[in-house]
Design a protein around this nucleic acid. Structure first.
Length: 573
DNA sequence: GCCGTTTTCGGCCCGACTGTTTTCAGTCG
């Protein structure tokens, strides 16, 4: 049974929690957590890396020791050290660490003092008033713990990017109205444009923080106040979202924005770099001894340690600081670079707009081209097109193209990849199209080898152009199907095919890390919205965000090309 | 346990808020 990356990461996270409770060396604990985070986000399977004999210790956050432990986990599915540690400290305690307000020290005290091992134990003890008897605990802590236990069950999962924006924007507008507020800026993972957002981080500049915090507390949507100070507050919104607001003076804006944008790992790395140069970096500025040397803008903060500006999307401590130092940061793609959309539906299948409406909206966006890619016949639920209806649509496109000025409609179809790897429409139909977008919508549960082979076989068809939503995942709803993404990318490159970065905020498929893998392989990507109505064309910006997180520049993306260049890219030998 | 523009050893980011305390530990981001 192949071991998944998340399983390896879970083992290291659990081990870190238990060692934390035992009071082990905090830097050793951090090493396990850093490794877990790296492994969780890695686009390649560690089981396959091990099988291929790769030297894992070359990877960031992995040294000789952890490389050996990963090998053991891949071979056996277990880690002897974790078994050993959990014989002393019950593994269930690591779950208690997830409760807000409970860290390693309190979990340890609750375990040793009251033999509490589970959330149920904790709730009983809190209700019967036994927790307040423990040294260092009292009534307020006890009721906070009880609240934490209840919230654990109700805690909302991470929001999608578009959902987070829906909650953030009205709050930003509201805070801006507070007297004395100079600026309001979103920070945190929303500013880094992560595909999912855990909580909202908002930076406010003002001379005095207290009135801003009172204004925040009065916000209609606030359900309860977790903490409230003069410079920092945390509140919960009724929708179950946690919001952190930080207030700093204008002179600290850049330093505070950098600090509050994160990621945590990036901040740590940058601060370390500062230390080497005799600088202390915090949210108030960059300091040499007591003297502030930078902090008004983020660019100033980076410049103080000899770096060019690093865009938020890259701030993960995944090589961006080293690249910046060598002046080798990519010139990231922007929305303005995009010349067209290569995956759109109309009412002919499961879309809601007409050909004309889609073309008009694309033209209004300044696009040079837009393609229509209705589903093929196999996708019956979406009223997929058979041969006859495809030809009818092509005729309609020809007529419309003759009338249109400034934008061209490209002829395409979202062709189903059948279970044996053949395509859902015959080649004499496909050859009439400008290109194809091919996709899997059925048999998600094939083994990894079979699924990979199925898609590679489909790419063997000379009319295969772009693989749509390559992993099939729906964020928070459906896991990616088992697939060897690296093999698909290599296969696509060899055959002159491309992979789609599906820009729909429910999909964002490819991941940022997968985009970076594509770039390493030299495979170009199409950023497409999969629009089912005219409004969905707007999703392009989420695709751009994701591409930027994957280090992609305009030249790495095919729909930044002119129509002429695009057509020549579509020609397969 | 990782890591190297001081280093293969000796470092490892930095500060706010809360609650339980008489000066600080714990948690969080």
């Amino acid at each position: 049974m192949p071991v998944h990356n998340t399983e390896i990461a879970d083992i290291f996270d659990e081990l870190a929690d238990l060692l934390d409770i035992e009071g082990a060396n905090p830097f050793r604990i951090r090493a396990y957590r850093n490794a877990a985070e790296m492994i969780r986000g890695h686009p390649k399977s560690f089981a396959e890396l091990v099988a291929a004999g790769q030297d894992l210790s070359k990877l960031p956050s992995i040294g000789k020791d952890l490389a050996g432990k990963i090998q053991v986990i891949v071979d056996t599915g277990r880690l002897p050290l974790l078994d050993q540690v959990s014989s002393r400290t019950p593994a269930a305690l690591s779950k208690l660490m997830k409760i807000e307000g409970l860290g390693p020290q309190r979990v340890k005290a609750l375990y040793h003092g009251l033999n509490i091992r589970s959330a149920a134990d904790l709730e009983r003890a809190a209700k019967s008033g036994r927790i307040r008897e423990l040294p260092g605990f009292a009534a307020k802590t006890e009721s906070a713990i009880l609240k934490g236990v209840r919230q654990l069950a109700a805690r909302a999962q991470r929001m999608k990017l578009n959902e987070a924006e829906d909650f953030a924007q009205p709050l930003l507008d509201y805070l801006q109205k507070c007297k004395g507020v100079k600026s309001v800026t979103v920070a945190g993972s929303l500013r880094r444009r992560k595909e999912t957002i855990g909580d909202l981080d908002i930076l406010v500049t003002a001379q005095r923080g207290t009135p801003v915090m009172q204004h925040l507390a009065d916000y209609d949507e606030v359900e309860d106040i977790v903490s409230q100070g003069a410079t920092r507050s945390t509140v919960h919104l009724r929708a179950g979202i946690s919001v952190d607001v930080r207030v700093v003076p204008q002179v600290s804006y850049g330093a505070a924005l950098h600090y509050f944008t994160g990621s945590k790992a990036h901040n740590i790395a940058l601060r370390k770099l500062g230390i080497k140069q005799g600088l202390k970096i915090n949210e108030y500025g960059v300091f040499r001894q007591k003297k502030r040397v930078a902090g008004r803008t983020e660019a100033e903060v980076f410049a103080s340690v000899g770096l060019p500006y690093i865009p938020p999307e890259l701030r993960r401590d995944h090589g961006e600081i080293a690249a910046a130092r060598l002046d080798q940061l990519p010139k990231l793609v922007t929305l303005a670079d995009i010349r067209g959309d290569l995956h759109c539906h109309t009412r002919a299948s499961d879309g809601h707009a007409t050909l004309e409406e889609m073309a008009d909206t694309a033209a209004q966006r300044g696009y040079q081209y837009v393609s229509i890619n209705d589903h093929s016949q196999r996708v019956t639920i979406a009223h997929g097109l058979d041969e006859k209806r495809v030809f009818e649509q092509l005729e309609a496109i020809d007529k419309l193209n003759a009338k249109l000025d400034g934008i061209s409609i490209l002829k395409s179809t979202e062709v189903e990849i059948l279970e044996d790897g053949s395509l859902d429409l015959p080649n004499h139909v496909l050859k009439e199209l400008d290109f194809t977008v091919c996709a899997v919508h059925y048999q998600y549960d094939l083994s990894k080898d079979k699924q990979t082979a199925r898609i590679l076989r489909a790419m063997d068809n000379p009319y295969f152009t772009i693989l749509a939503h390559p992993t099939g995942r729906l964020i928070n709803e459906r896991d990616p199907y088992a697939i060897n993404l690296e093999a698909l990318m290599n296969g696509a490159k060899q055959r002159g095919c491309f992979l789609e970065l599906n820009a729909h905020p429910d999909r964002l498929d490819l991941s940022g890390d997968a985009c970076r893998l594509a770039k390493d392989i030299g495979l170009k990507v199409a950023i497409s919205t999969d629009a089912h109505n005219t409004g969905d064309l707007e999703y392009m910006r989420y695709g751009i965000d994701q591409a930027r997180r994957g280090w992609l520049a305009a030249e790495d993306i095919i729909n930044t090309r002119s129509l002429k260049d695009l057509r020549s890219l579509f020609k397969r030998n």
